[in-house]
Amino acid sequence: MTPKTRDRWLTYLSVLVLLGILVLAQEYADEYQVRILNMVAIYITLAVSYNLINGVTGQFSLEPNAFVALGAYTASLLTLTPLEKGMSFIIDPCIWPLSVISIPFLPAVIIGGLVAAFFGFLMGFPVFRVRGDYLAIVTLGFGEVIRVVANNLQSVTNGPLGLKGIALYTNLWWSWGLALVTLFVINRLVKSSYGRALKAIRENELAAESMGINAFRHKLLAFTMSAFFEGMAGALLAHLITTISPMLFTFFMTFNLLIIITIGGLGSITGSVLAAIAFAWGSELLRAVEEPINILGLYTIPGIPGMRMVIFSIILIVVMIFARKGFMGRREFTWQWLFDRMHRKGIGL
């Protein structure tokens, strides 16, 4: 058995183990734990797709909240029944044809992704005229514009009231299914000649161009693809929390994702996955610090909302000081690496 086939089987095996865990979770875990598992999967999807443009292609952009919002709103408006829309839209009625449409979940999720991808594609033309800091500012602006539009387009998005009564369609199969598809697609892309081209643009755009690589087109490809998956993740998120409003899609969402991919290592897919798991899980564990804490019955620290963000920021600072490239850097976790390590420790195989 060559190392390559061995690695492939190990990957299949770990996917099977994951599915086993999901079956068990579906059966025995309580609602809260299932919800965390769903959030972990959605964060993996978001982080891996955001990393494609920020890490692999090296184009520092700050817009995923916009694509998540686009996907979430599109899919929710498509799945909500006309009756529910009639009840939610109390200030301005929902415009035709949205007011009468109601389609199943799967097409709604895919359309959500496509709408985000379409906007990503259009946005790519102006935003990739600039680089570096300017790109960050322009994309940040785009993210804000989408949120403000969602806040004011009363007859489409129901404005600040948001959408309520979205069906709880997202379960472990949907969220982990999307996460696995995203991982599969982006991993295949990054390992191909296209992935090498994206990395070449990150390392030296001038050299890439002089080798016949159209940098603009490749940036657009990475941007559109990350928008597509972020949009679908947004659709799943909406059908998990069942109520969405523009407040959900502020810059903080982008900021959280930025923390994840930076800590995981810009450009490392497995780094993003690990950091996404740590983040989604960690932010639930850290809920404790936002509640009043009683120290030995002597003194009570009142609960401080937002304390979690402080802790995440401290973690970020520490990581940036001691591991400036995140804990994976640009490396990837590979089975080979694991075998080499075990070999060195004397655990023969």
Partner: peptide, 16 residues
């Protein structure tokens, strides 16, 4: 290998 990319015929979904 990078220098061959400009002449690649397969679209991006082919490797995926």
């Amino acid at each position: 290998m990078m220098s061959f990319h400009g002449r690649l015929k397969s679209p991006f979904w082919a490797p995926i």
